[in-house]
């Protein structure tokens, strides 16, 4: 399955919806979206992962790149990762740095950030 990423920015929140398979051959698509989000004044990055079926270390490196580019002030939320994607996030310790949530509730996140 091919990889697709779409970016939507509302106020200071960037939301990237990921679907398909994120590997080294498709990571640049993700990087482009992250770059576009980082160029804006955002404080939150929401990664919608429900439709992301596969994640390799190339995608993980993009997450590191994201966090280091955006700085410690930007909170990252991972929404509804599939079981094996979550397994990869846990094995590599990424779950310590991102907030993994089941559903994206804009009001709750705004409240958590305030």
């Amino acid at each position: 399955m091919t990889f697709n990423a779409t970016l939507e920015i509302i106020d200071n929140i960037a939301q990237i919806s990921l679907s398909g398979e994120l590997d080294a051959s498709t990571a640049l698509i993700f990087q482009e979206k992250i770059g576009a989000a980082a160029a804006q004044d955002i404080n939150t990055l929401i990664l919608m992962m429900k439709e992301l079926e596969y994640l390799s270390s190339a995608g993980l490196r993009m997450l590191i790149f994201t966090k280091q580019k955006m700085g410690p002030g930007v909170a990252i939320y991972v929404v509804s990762p599939q079981e094996m994607v979550m397994d990869t996030l846990e094995k590599t310790g990424f779950h310590h740095s991102v907030n993994v949530i089941d559903e994206y509730d804009a009001a709750k996140i705004a409240s958590a950030l305030s």
Binding site: S56, S57, A58, I64, K67, P72, I76, H96, S97
Partner: peptide, 13 residues
């Protein structure tokens, strides 16, 4: 166990 802000990129694969 480091936060992503302090991570290096290599070796994960």
């Amino acid at each position: 166990q480091k936060v992503l802000d302090e991570r290096s990129m290599g070796g994960l694969g």
